[in-house]
Simulated scan of single mutants.
Amino acid sequence: MTANSANTSASIFRLSPLIRITLLSLYVALTVPLPFLAQVTAAPVPPALLWVGISIGLVALYAVLTERVILDEQGIQVAYPTWVPRFFRKGWSLSWAQIKELKPRTTGQGGIVYYFLSQEGKAYLLPVRVARFGQMVRQVQAKTGIDTTDVSTLAQPWMYLILLGFTLLLLLIDAWTITTALSIGQIT
């Protein structure tokens, strides 16, 4: 199954922008002060090495956040852009005929995730952090006949808004930390 089938129109569902912005901002807030603090404290790890690690981590996180779900007449596909190596994130695809059922599973934190079960008994995680999730689930129901009325996202948007708010607060604290570290570095 390909995303560019000639005679079918595909619906593409990308990760929610709120989730992408929140997670990327949180990563920056948690990592960017480290090279500055390493320099001021004369840590054994050189700041340049930390910058390299932070950059690699940022690219890896961004790659994960480029996940998209593609629904067309043939089936459902979770895919990544061609620049994301397959060994890093493979994705998967199922034809509508291969889908036997949608099974809920409880997470360790008490939430519920859903898996497509194929005719062969393999499980495929239903992506729940996509924008227009309700529309995607309605299309899955229309194509498979599986009742999806109880299917919901793992985390509600307000949870990510709260996390984004705290992340912005952390970024302000980071600005103060970096400014202080730079001024200490100039004094010594």
Rank of each mutant, 00 (worst) to 15 (best):
Lys90Phe: 06
Gly134His: 07
Leu23Gly: 00
Leu182Lys: 07
Ile178Met: 11
Trp176Arg: 07
Arg138Asp: 12
Gln141Tyr: 05
Gln139Cys: 05
Ala60Gln: 09
Leu71Val: 10
Leu163Pro: 01
Ile19Cys: 05
Thr188Gln: 11
Tyr115Gln: 08
Leu168Gln: 12
Trp158Asn: 09
Arg132Ala: 14
Gly91Cys: 10
Arg86Asn: 07
Ile56Tyr: 09
Val113Asn: 00
Val78Leu: 09
Leu163Thr: 08
Tyr62Asn: 04
Val59Tyr: 14
Leu26Arg: 04
Leu164Ala: 15
Leu65Ser: 06
Arg105Thr: 13
Val64His: 01
Met136Tyr: 02
Val84Lys: 00
Val140Gly: 01
Ile112Thr: 15
Thr41Gln: 08
Leu182Trp: 12
Gln139Val: 13
Ala142Met: 01
Lys90Ile: 06
Leu125Ser: 10
Trp83Arg: 05
Ile146Ser: 04
Ile112Pro: 05
Gln119Arg: 13
Gly53Trp: 12
Ser16Thr: 10
Val69Asp: 00
Glu101Tyr: 01
Arg20Ile: 15
Val137Glu: 00
Lys103Trp: 07
Lys143Phe: 08
Leu18Asn: 11
Leu50Asn: 05
Thr22Arg: 04
Pro17Asn: 13
Thr177Gly: 02
Leu126Gln: 08
Tyr115Lys: 06
Leu102Arg: 06
Trp83Ile: 07
Asp174Trp: 11
Gln139Trp: 03
Thr179Phe: 05
Ala123Cys: 03
Val32Tyr: 04
Gln39Cys: 01
Gln156Asp: 11
Tyr27Leu: 08
Thr82Trp: 14
Ile21Asn: 09
Arg129Lys: 05
Val59Phe: 15
Met136Cys: 02
Ile12Glu: 11
Lys100His: 04
Leu94Gly: 10
Tyr80Pro: 04
Gly91Lys: 10
Leu50Asp: 06
Leu26His: 11
Ser55Thr: 15
Thr144Leu: 12
Gln119Trp: 04
Gly91Trp: 09
Gly145Val: 07
Gln77Asn: 13
Val64Gly: 01
Tyr62Thr: 08
Lys103Thr: 13
Leu23Ile: 09
Leu23Ser: 03
Pro127Phe: 03
Arg132Val: 03
Phe166Cys: 10
Thr82Ser: 14
Arg129Thr: 00
Trp92Lys: 02
Ile178Glu: 11
Ser16Asn: 12
Ile184Trp: 13
Gly91Thr: 13
Arg89His: 09
Ile178Asn: 12
Thr22Tyr: 05
Leu170Glu: 11
Val113Glu: 01
Leu117Pro: 02
Ser152Arg: 08
Phe88Ala: 09
